[in-house]
Design a protein around this nucleic acid. Sequence first.
DNA 1: CTTAGGG
DNA 2: CCCTAAG
Length: 680
Amino acid sequence: MVLKKRVDYGFNGFRVPIIPKAPRSVRRRGPFNKATEDGRVCAIELLASLAGQLLQESESSASSNASEGNRQPAFSQGVIEQDRQGEVKPLKKEEIHQGSCAESTFKTEVGSQNSSQKPLPHAKTDFSQGHVSVNNDSDIWEKVQADVKSEIFKWDNKFGNYSNRLVEPSEKFRESSDCKMKNGFKQEMKAGSSCFRGSNLADKCSLKDHIELYVSPTLINSKSNIKSPFHRKSSPSASFSRHGNVVKLGSRDDDENFLRCKRVCTKSKAFRSPRRIAHRRIRNLMSSKYWKTAPKLKDCELSRSDLGVPHYHKRKTCYGFERSQHNTIIKKRKIVDRVSGVTSDGGFSSESVSNSPQKGTDGDKPSSSAKLHLAKAKDSHVKFSIKSIRIPELYIEVPETATVGSLKRTIMEAVMAILGGGAHVGVLHHGKKVRDDNRTLVQTGISCNENLDTLSFMLEPVSLQVSPTVCVGDPSSQCETSQLTRPIETPALDSGITDTLHDSPLVTYPGNLIESNHESTYSLADTTIDKITPDSRALVPVPDSTEALAVVPVSQKIKRSEFVQRRTRRPFSVSEVEALVHAVEELGTGRWRDVKLRAFENADHRTYVDLKDKWKTLVHTATISPQQRRGEPVPQELLDRVLAAHAFWSQHQAKQHGKHQAGSGTLKITEASAERPCVC
DNA sequence: CTTAGGG
DNA sequence: CCCTAAG
């Protein structure tokens, strides 16, 4: 609703249009919040979503009478109930702490009778660790186990060995200064742990076999074969142990055709909140969309790309690490850690990259390409020591007046932006991209010693990997990377106040700032006409459509302790201040979200908190003497408006508050003009 | 998630 | 800018 009506509030002469608060439903979250839209998905959610998929798929073939109330009595201790839509519903608190599996944080029961699904092909998993016990000789179930185990490895590769950590959190882990978050994370992971089991195995679920099954987020997106067993008719039970834990799989022949997820946690908040806290923490650490890792937290925090998407089952996503067979025993869980591992000490620690004890001992000169050292191990594992890794081509534009330091930061941000948007690891063998993820290393020829230097890795935005329809077909589901390709736009204001904004130079993309002979994946037609504020330090990573050729050596001097860094300081320009002032004049203080949407919607780096803070400092600046002010001088005219608006809205807020306190109507406003009329 | 306010 | 309590 656009309100043309303007009402004179008799306040310093300017008129304030009545702008109703945007309905919640139509409000769009600012870019700042996008970071929360992806996040780590704990296993139970994945399973729940998986269940939803299974249900939907089985619905066609089965006249399912599954319903919410159709609970399996024997498994009613849980908290999460899986309904047919894949929604996870919290059960009552009283329902927990009962039953034989009270110690198990989660129990997931799988029941499925009707399915024609078969396990997906790549079920050959190297069971180099743990043992497998199969109650049934079915080949399928071997594959099932293989897949589950593969997923567990995958999970551990990504997130670390949480199953162990959860069971025995170290003191340091508990007492860390970030204990709160970590505990939250721990709780979450605990909540996210799951147990597959069949009803016939219920009695085996004891305190000792604390069953934890981690499922990769990609499980859902990629329609992993892990679901296959659940579709299998009259599935036998299977179990395997790992790290002393047992994962049991089973399906109930006597059960209805849906999957139940149950857990022992109490409230849904206990289930969700920690994750959200973690997300928040992650978001903070990652500064919205930039991928920053926190060394201290690296064991309990997850990189965005590893996080998957919390509401993956409801919305499209451009994330999605390809599911791959993780026959390797690489311990590290995120790409960036590998990178940081390189940057911190010049080489990967054996802990951080692989279980290979050999660190990068040779004094290789810094290489811009991925150097890989392979060593054939006796257990047929290929050991990698990655010196560096390529990242995709970047397109960076900074004003001439930018400092070298800001250039560095910009590049760093660009890198982080790409990584933060999700990245795949591309594998180049003999300079040729290995596209088939299902090929084994042996098949690819990577496992040979003579291929030491023939292999390289590169990071590439997920958009290059994701089906184009995901990003292109649906404008509303614009993928992160494509958003990143958009320049920061000048806030579009609807009044002539902001003439200076429109003086912003038109930024084009000649494509020659950084040598590039590749066409961009994205059409520049739109971005060409977009305006960029002069000080916006436009950051435009342009993913390469074919190969990531540009090589950007990873900084060698990033200390871990500095990795949790603040966002780069980006002083407000006069234009921005003007936009802010204008918006606040219209909307008032206390509606920063609306201010953000109105005037800074496209300025991803300005959050509503930033705007609020800026307003705070503006008020302060306007209060102090000009000699005391620092930074780019703000025109006095603007400061006057700041003071005026601040005074007005403070008064207005006070009145509102007074009215609230005394009850409406009790405290009559003397200035009728100061009241904001109700506009409908 | 937003707002508000201290650091 | 960060952090976080409070709603």
